[in-house]
Computed example of a mutant assay.
Amino acid sequence: MKTALLFTVLVLSATTGQAADSCRPGAKSVVQDLKSLCQELDKKNETHCQIKTPAKAEKVPEITYGLLSASGKMKGLFEKLNTIQQAFLKESGGCPGGCSKVNSPVVEIKTEPTGTVADPACPAVYSVLQVSATEASKFGVRQTDKFFQKAFRLVGDEKACQEKASTFAQETLMGKNEFGSFLEDHKCKSPCSYASVIRMKTEKLSKAECAVVLELSVQCGPPKKDREWKTNASLTKAFRCEVAP
């Protein structure tokens, strides 16, 4: 956070008596006083710019698809989410005066089979997969309680960042990258099936750069009844207010 006011201190002169006074126990120098004042202003400015209104989530209609229609349906879903996101990124209101708005939209996509069947080789209900610290390091992810986390930063707009993150997530779920193959071979073997949550928090760093934090929850459960899935998605219009530079 930046202090709203910039102080320039000019020390012109000091008498011997004044210098002695400033050195007495408990006495404060002018510089110390101004430093304390700056810190107090920082706290007040940060408090002034805090927002207490919860972020609103906008949902898109649920989609159901099979293997053949999956690509087209997911493409259409991401296009809808991107339309909502681009409109939100242009919004500027919502922050107190003297504060600047930083939009950080959060996309969440939940997918699961439309139906399952029991199998003794698989969990009866979906449970979150976890990896060891060594395994997480090997595949470049971070393990939290319920999610695998991976950060992306690149030259491009918010859409480019989200495409990078969503590609990693989908390739993992389809076993098309090293991490996905490892999960299939060691954590959730066939005929067990996946349910998943993809969460992406995106932020524009500059005109040329964007960043996204991907959180991927992979859950292992009973086999699919049919080769069909359903997906629910939403975009949460999250933002924060910062002290204007």
Rank of each mutant, 00 (worst) to 15 (best):
A19Y: 04
I51V: 14
E40T: 14
P25W: 12
T53S: 08
D21H: 05
I63D: 05
A19C: 02
D42N: 10
V31L: 10
D42M: 05
G72F: 08
S71P: 00
S69G: 01
D21L: 14
K43I: 08
L34F: 12
K59G: 00
T53E: 08
S71M: 02
G66N: 13
S69M: 03
L41H: 11
P54C: 07
V60I: 12
S69T: 15
K44N: 09
A70Q: 12
A55M: 01
V60C: 01
A70I: 03
L67P: 03
M74L: 15
L67M: 09
N45Y: 10
A70T: 04
Q18S: 07
K28H: 13
K35G: 13
L41E: 09
S29N: 09
A27R: 09
L41N: 10
A19P: 00
A57E: 07
I51W: 02
K43R: 15
N45T: 12
L41T: 12
G17C: 03
D21K: 09
L67G: 14
K73M: 13
V31Y: 08
A57S: 14
R24Y: 11
N45C: 04
S69A: 14
E40N: 12
S69F: 00
K52A: 08
L68K: 03
G66R: 02
C38D: 15
S71H: 07
A70M: 05
S29R: 13
V60A: 00
D33K: 05
K35W: 12
A57N: 02
S69H: 05
P61W: 08
N45E: 09
L68G: 01
K35N: 10
D42R: 13
S36M: 07
S22Q: 11
V30L: 13
V31H: 09
R24N: 11
V31P: 01
S69V: 04
M74C: 03
A57Q: 06
Y65V: 05
K43F: 02
C23L: 15
D42W: 03
A55K: 00
C49Q: 04
H48C: 00
G17N: 10
V60H: 01
A57T: 10
V30E: 07
T64S: 13
K35T: 14
D33E: 12
G72C: 03
P54N: 06
E58D: 09
R24M: 10
T53P: 01
E58N: 05
D42Y: 04
K56C: 03
D21I: 03
S71W: 05
R24I: 02
K56P: 01
K56R: 06
A55G: 04
K35R: 10
T64A: 07
G26Y: 14
C49A: 04
P61G: 06
A70R: 10
L68E: 06
P54W: 09
L41I: 07
L67I: 06
L41S: 06
D42A: 11
S71R: 13
S36P: 00
L67W: 14
D21M: 08
I63R: 11
M74T: 14
V30I: 09
S36V: 03
K56E: 12
S71I: 05
C38P: 00
A20Y: 12
Q39A: 10
V30P: 04
V30N: 01
A20F: 09
S69E: 14
A20T: 06
L68A: 09
V31S: 09
V30W: 11
K59A: 15
S69K: 01
R24D: 06
S69D: 14
G66E: 11
T53N: 02
K56M: 06
L37D: 04
A70P: 00
